[in-house]
């Protein structure tokens, strides 16, 4: 019994210590935002990798989801004569929830994994030590550009995802469900409010930050060898996905609680 309690205590203390190290890492990363030097070229590369090159996967995900959402709302609304609200519900569903969450999760899958694997490999092959011996702070050179790029790029990706999701709903609505194009678009535009867009972009920024932070944390603290890289990558994606979904609940509550 004592041994079990000791093990639980050690596990708890280890968990808290890890949480403390993670918080210190996140805090240090944020403080580097206001402390030079800054590596503009690294930021540009990160923006390209995280933002521009994520557009295809984000676009396709949003397009298919918007279309499927339109079909579901039509079928569900049909049960109580509310199938006419498809444009409004697709719009609000995409902009408030599905756009940010799906983009966040796709970024976690594509970007978090990539960051974690890249940094973990750099850790394993001593490239991060090499940076230090070249008197270059890895937090500034590797972590900050990725965090900043994700925080800036993911809201834009979310905006694009929202629009393409609505487009997916419009394609299905007008092509399959018999909606009139002009009426569909007018209903969509009339229904959305500035707060909907604001919440979407804010969620994008938070999700982008979390996705990059998890990738950087797990990559920079990776264990040795191929197994270390694999664990870092898996851990980063899982942590990012869970953090994004948890943050989504908190932000939805903050923006839309009555």
């Amino acid at each position: 019994m004592i041994a079990l309690l000791a093990r639980i205590g050690a596990w708890t203390l280890g968990g808290l210590a890890g949480l403390g190290r993670f918080a210190a890492f996140a805090g240090a990363a944020v403080t580097h935002l206001v402390r030079p030097p800054f590596y503009g070229r690294e930021l540009a590369v990160a923006l390209l990798q995280i933002g521009w090159l994520s557009l295809p996967v984000v676009g396709l995900t949003a397009l298919f989801t918007g279309g499927a959402l339109a079909l579901q709302i039509y079928a569900g609304g049909n049960r109580f004569g509310a199938e006419a609200v498809v444009p409004q519900i697709v719009a609000i569903g995409m902009v408030r929830e599905l756009g940010p969450v799906l983009v966040g999760l796709m970024v976690a899958a594509r970007v978090t994994s990539s960051i974690a694997a890249e940094l973990a490999t750099m850790r394993v092959t001593e490239q991060i030590d090499a940076l230090v011996t070249l008197s270059t702070d890895p937090m500034k050179y590797l972590v900050l550009p990725r965090l900043l790029a994700a925080t800036l790029a993911v809201p834009l990706l979310v905006g694009v995802g929202d629009l393409i999701g609505i487009l997916g709903g419009w394609i299905v609505g007008t092509g399959r469900l018999g909606f009139v194009s002009a009426a569909y678009l007018r209903n969509t535009l009339d229904f959305l409010e500035p707060l909907d867009w604001a919440s979407s972009f804010a969620k994008g920024a938070v999700f982008g930050f979390l996705a990059a932070l998890m990738g950087c944390w797990f990559g920079m603290t990776s264990g040795r060898g191929a197994m270390g890289v694999g664990r870092a990558t898996k851990g980063a994606v899982v942590a990012a996905a869970v953090a994004i979904l948890a943050a989504n609940l908190i932000l939805t509550e903050a923006f839309f609680s009555a």
Binding site: M122, T125, E126, Q127, D129, A130, L131, T133, S135
Partner: peptide, 12 residues
């Protein structure tokens, strides 16, 4: 300081 790492540690 100049440091030559065992595996080179060139930035790939």
């Amino acid at each position: 300081v100049g440091m030559l790492f065992q595996g080179g540690a060139l930035f790939d």
